[in-house]
Design a protein around this nucleic acid. Structure first.
Lengths: 221, 221, 221, 221
DNA sequence: CATGAATGAGCTTTCATTCAT
DNA sequence: CATGAATGAAAGCTCATTCAT
């Protein structure tokens, strides 16, 4: 009877619909992520989100207070997801050069496969970060990747492969900016450069180039 | 007699209001640039734009057809402006290393001083480049900077300073992505890194780092 | 607490306004019928309708989706009403001539007393029947009068009064067209013929003439 | 140089465009007839009319004063056209029955081929004939057909074929109402009767039926 | 004779949100 | 715990029309 768990789609009458796939709350979050990502904060409407979630407007206010509250949770979720992904993978030990390449590969791959991460961050930046500062656990959002890079750089410098005094945060930003921008601005790039930047070949080329740039900026010649 | 409404183009009314500063059309474009930049496409309203331009919403439809037409012209204008700025400045001849540094300096400086360029491009990318593709003269938007970089790289390789086979477009994207991202994502970066990335010192540091990275990626060691 | 707004359907607020005459939905339908009938589809505005219904425009979208949805329901309702009226009355049995006269009398009388039926149908025809085809139950709209006429004609032919092979649908259309047109085009007729066609005498004369025409077209001489 | 006759389409500059097909005024009248006929008075907009006429709004006010003035001229024109058509054709002399059939055939055919005549008259009736009464020469609009019918009826009665005391105006209205309604209400008829009333066969059948009805109503048996 | 520029008022529709049980 | 009903405000856009030369 699952009477206390709102199901998505249809009234959960007497015994029917017992195999619930997603809770209403989760459905709304998923729909909201998709809508905010596709249309931005203003462009995504409460009504369309609730409809896409096969629920009704009222439920958004019930679970999230208002549109802003919903957006904040969406933001938190995709950032959590990113951090979890960063934490999950293992990088080659004892081979700093390879490990650094793996970090680059991970980041490029993640952005390529999760473009909604990028559009949501862009949306938040358009609004000057006003929501993320309201987030309850924004502090814990510092990227695990920076720590990983720091360790790799230290290892590399220890064995005389990498230069000393290279800051992990700079390398992190270098990797992130080049990877992020290439996805974020793909439409205007394609229009202005006059050629598709998102073909498999083009992406591979950019990946290789970025890897080369990053390694040249840390290695000792 | 609507004496307080600046007429566009033509001769304004009998002696009155002769010192017009901006035509109605231009005022609207300026206001629209500011609003679209600040609130995005959906977030900027036709009414607020026209009000900010000290005109009425009807004039936007008179001059631009609809909101989309206005946005397209805004986009074209800021891109024209960017291109003109790129074309205007002169880079050091006969000193490829210095010239390349100047290009980087120009780009970083331009984004820092024209953040609306970035928010507008982000907005357009959110909408998957649908407007720029409708632009009449989108093709002539290819950045002059790429040509400049190509020349510098060639010069540097001729005197044995730079590596051969480095593509101008890659270097261009490297410079642009690092400069752009640092401004574009300043709010989420500040929130997640836990420190302000936009202080004079921080910007200067990033400028120096990017210059170092770019030069390391082209120079022969 | 919006005390002067009649709530639709459900129980209205704590004891107040308990003697509700019409639900909001019904009020809107009545007002819409009047407005569409008087000004046509384009001429009737959502705002005026809602105001006439002592509601607000938003409720029209809440109940009917949009202006078109409202118009469809208006159309359905007046046709339902017509059909119910046709079904309700009883015609003389065993006197086909009298029965047929009664049918004519009913039709002429109905159009005379329900001119909005005519203006609404004209409006729908101006729009090439696009709404009625969207109606869920348009199929069940076939007029009961045709069946009645068929029975009368059969009866008359059985007793050698009426000709065989006269089609009920033709007689129906003959009655309807002559009755309808006389009301529908009363204004241009009055202008062009130079005399009022809607005086009691004139209507009576037309009624008598139509009856004569119909009977002559079915009777055996 | 036709400088004093506004041409339709493009500026009539130095010697160009010398073969003008329609004057601006005529183009507007044609476009207005089409638009008013298709969308009704409210549904047709000044802007769309002027655009369809390849002119600009301002010209409508220049030539016709306002929208109402334009509509009046449209009405007058289609009625003139109808009257001219009525006046033009010749009916069989000395054969009243055939002549009457020809009148019926003419009317049915005219409505079938000029449906805009019907939609415009319906539009005018929706507005309660307010425009036709403002027409300068509305008085001269009395249909020539009535006179023709009167003559035929007299002829027929003289040779003992037709009944006396049949009023020409009644026969006229009988013919017009049955012909008019069949076209005017074709969309709702098709929807409600569940079969297309506008096929060649169906129209021919109705034509035959109407002729039969009219003749039966005047002939002596 | 002819026309570009401008306009206030109104249009249909959707917005995020609250009421009341 | 959950939801149907209702709502004021604002959205983008089009309306018929006049100004001014």
């Amino acid at each position: 009877m699952q009477s206390n768990a709102p199901t998505s789609g249809g009234r959960s009458g007497a015994g029917k619909n017992t195999i619930k796939e997603f809770s209403t709350k989760e459905s709304i979050l998923n729909a909201a992520t998709a809508q905010f990502s596709k249309y931005g904060y203003e462009g995504a409407s409460v009504q369309k989100i609730s409809k896409a979630a096969k629920s009704v407007d009222r439920m958004i206010y019930y679970y999230f207070g208002n549109k802003e509250g919903l957006f904040i949770q969406v933001l938190e979720r995709i950032y959590d997801k990113m951090n979890q992904a960063e934490s999950a993978i293992k990088f080659s030990a004892n081979n700093p050069e390879k490990a650094l390449s793996e970090v680059i590969g991970f980041v490029i791959d993640y952005y390529q496969k999760n473009p909604e991460f990028i559009t949501l961050l862009n949306t938040e930046n358009l609004m000057q970060g006003k929501h993320i500062s309201k987030s309850a656990h924004a502090s814990q959002f510092s990227s695990p990747a920076i720590g990983v890079i720091r360790k790799i750089l230290f290892q590399g410098s220890q064995i005389g492969l990498f230069r000393k005094n290279v800051k992990a945060i700079d390398i992190y930003l270098l990797i992130v900016s080049t990877s992020y921008f290439y996805v974020s601005n793909r439409f205007t790039l394609t229009a202005f450069l006059g050629k598709d930047t998102q073909t498999k070949t083009a992406v591979k080329h950019w990946h290789k180039f970025v890897t080369d740039v990053v390694l040249r900026s840390v290695k000792i010649y």
